[in-house]
Each structure stands twice: as structure tokens, then as C-alpha cells.
């Protein structure tokens, strides 16, 4: 058993499951958006804005953002532990990544529910 404190779920199994579950959400969300764009040829700002005014779409989008955050963290955590061997540099990189993901997530929520 290799101990780790910086990965998401403290267990490789939960990380692995999170990554696969989040990938499914992201795939569905991507399919939906692409489909929506294809089937709305005369898309204007009002329609687009209208779509995101609906609660279900906001929840779906939030789910996609959270999934993206989790997916990105698991993936980037893996990359940093693969390639960044000095502990200081690795922790610094991981901190920056966490901060960036956090900022993007909060910003996304603000976009969805903001004025």
C-alpha cells in the first residue's frame, strides 16, 4: 500500500471511479451542447440565454463544471506525480492547479447564477 494525501479520494479506486464517472457526465454534456448548436441554426443571444435561464440546464451545467474540476484534478495530479520528482516543486504545482480549478469553478457558478 502506497500512502498518498494529495490525491482526491485518498484511494486509487475512488479516483479511478471519479475519473470515469466525470468522463461520462462530460461526454453527455458535450453531446448535448453540440446537438443543441446543430439543431438551432438561427441561434441568437436571447435563445442561448434562455436555455441557461432554466434551472435544469443550470444544474446540468454545474454538474459538468464539478465533473470537469474533479476530472482535471485527478488527471493533473497524476501528471505532477509522474513528472515532478522534487517534492517542493510538485507541491507548488499542485497548489497552483488547485487554486486555478477552484477559481474557474467559482467563476463558473457565478456565470451560471449571477446577474
Amino acid at each position: 500500500m502506497v500512502t498518498n494525501i494529495t490525491n482526491l479520494g485518498r484511494s486509487g479506486l475512488s479516483d479511478w471511479l471519479v475519473q470515469r464517472a466525470s468522463a461520462i457526465v462530460l461526454a453527455l454534456y458535450t453531446l448535448f451542447i453540440v446537438g443543441y448548436l446543430l439543431f438551432s441554426p438561427g441561434l441568437d443571444y436571447a435563445t442561448w440565454s434562455g436555455l441557461f435561464a432554466q434551472t435544469w440546464m443550470r444544474i446540468f451545467s454545474l454538474l459538468a463544471f464539478v465533473s470537469l474540476s474533479a476530472h482535471a484534478w485527478v488527471g493533473l495530479w497524476t501528471v505532477t506525480t509522474d513528472y515532478l520528482k522534487p517534492t517542493g516543486i510538485r507541491i507548488a504545482a499542485q497548489s497552483i492547479i488547485i487554486l486555478a480549478i477552484f477559481v474557474f469553478l467559482v467563476w463558473g457558478i457565478q456565470v451560471l447564477w449571477g446577474a
Binding site: 500500500m1 500512502t3 498518498n4 484511494s11 486509487g12 497524476t78 506525480t81
Partner: peptide
């Protein structure tokens, strides 16, 4: 199994 569930042993 419990020895293998961490993020490295198998999941790398």
C-alpha cells in the same frame, strides 16, 4: 486487495 487500492500500485 486492500494493499492495492492506493492511487499508485495498480491505478498507475
Amino acid at each position: 486487495l486492500s494493499e492495492l487500492e492506493d492511487p499508485f500500485s495498480v491505478f498507475r
